[in-house]
Amino acid sequence: MDIFISKINYVLYFVLFTLGFYAMMAKNNFFKKIIGMSIFQASVILFYVSMGYKKGANIPIVPESHNVDVNLFANPLPHVLMLTAIVVGVSTLAVALSLLQKIHKEYRTIEEDEVLNLMEEE
């Protein structure tokens, strides 16, 4: 139980992950699926950045070049990878929203079961 308390932040990241994943599978509205994708991506970003945190450290901006004590600065590598991830996430969101508009133009609805019924009728 002690271990569980000290790692409660990982558990909450995984709860967010599962919420986003369930929303992408089970929600009927396409826009709610896109919201689920966004929640899902934010939880993964939080998880990675939490790996770069060092207790008692400062932000990774190094003012001088001699005798750099590595334990005084946060780990910069997860930050760099997550910068790319955020920007790719917003690009995916833009393409998903354009697909949503196209579906609405064609079928006049954005509920998944109505779209599937209309597709079967054609």
């Binding site: 934010a42 970003i45 950045v49 946060a74 997860p78 930050h79 997550m82 955020i86 920007v87």
Partner: peptide, 25 residues
Amino acid sequence: LSKMLAVDVAFTEACVGSGVSTVLM
């Protein structure tokens, strides 16, 4: 993210996530 000392990532998430992303939606 800024509590976890990732200031660049927090800046990007503030601009992109709660700025452009909300406007596009």
